[in-house]
């Protein structure tokens, strides 16, 4: 679904992405893992058109993602920090997104809006929302237009356990419908049960990109945290 070829981005002297080649297929939920500054965020931002790479290509089903802003209609994004215009109400923010994306989607998906009971807080201004409520709103907006690709940056951070479970269930459902879900998280255990593939980046390079099940079997470890620790230890001589 998404193909990156030689994707390179440097910030000053820092090589945030160093010729990344990767193919991400639909029907998977792919966890991006790597130490701080390994290029996870830069990779996501390239995908979303927020960062313009120096070199390389990014395609979505063969179409050039970098040159065509209309292709972003097929992507839903949940940022790490959701901040909306202070004085708008939750309902207005949702309406605004609908208006901005008008004509670019065929059907909306309001499962999360219902599951999170957003109607109850739709009259609140976004400024008064707690961090968790903002996350819920961000999640609703990411899934709202039924996109083929979902980019979720630290989706469960700040969510209460009930909301986190709802979101994870939704991710699982969308993945099984053939969508591509890209995830990042600092707390690996949070998302391990919905991860189907692991994409490991170090210093802007892809260290490995393998199915979770395969890794688990090879290292005899089901939990993602210890698994990654074991792999990192093995990699060092």
């Amino acid at each position: 679904m998404i193909t990156a070829r030689n994707l390179t981005k440097t910030f000053g002297r820092l090589k945030a992405l160093d010729s990344v080649n990767v193919v991400l297929k639909g029907g998977r939920s792919i966890m991006l893992i790597g130490p701080n500054g390994s290029g996870k965020t830069t990779f996501i931002k390239c995908l979303l058109g927020l960062v313009i790479p120096d070199e390389g290509w990014l395609t979505l089903d063969g179409e050039d993602l970098l040159g065509d802003h209309t292709l972003r209609r097929r992507i839903g994004y949940m940022p790490q920090i959701g901040r909306f215009p202070d004085h708008l109400k939750v309902g207005q923010v949702i309406d605004m997104m609908r208006e901005i994306r008008r004509g670019t989607f065929t059907r909306t998906d309001e499962d999360l809006i219902e599951a999170f009971d957003m109607a109850k807080i739709s009259h609140k201004t976004t400024r008064t929302l707690s961090g968790g409520m903002r996350q819920k709103l961000s999640a609703c907006l990411a899934f709202l237009f039924n996109p083929d690709v979902l980019v979720l940056d630290e989706p469960t951070a700040g969510l209460d356990p009930v909301a986190a479970e709802i979101l994870k269930e939704k991710v699982r459902a969308e993945r099984d419908r053939g969508k591509l879900v890209l995830l990042t998280s600092h707390i690996l255990s949070d998302l391990e049960d919905i991860t189907s593939e692991v994409l490991y980046l170090i210093e802007g390079r892809v260290q490995f990109h393998r199915p979770m099940a395969e890794l688990a079997e090879e290292h005899g470890e089901q939990r993602l945290g210890p698994l990654i620790a074991r792999i990192m230890k093995a990699a060092k001589p």
Partner: peptide, 17 residues
């Protein structure tokens, strides 16, 4: 500056910069 995160979110939508 206060709208930075929101501008980022807008830039990730199918909208021209």
């Amino acid at each position: 500056y206060n709208s930075y995160e929101f501008i980022e979110l807008l830039a990730a939508q199918p909208v021209k910069r």
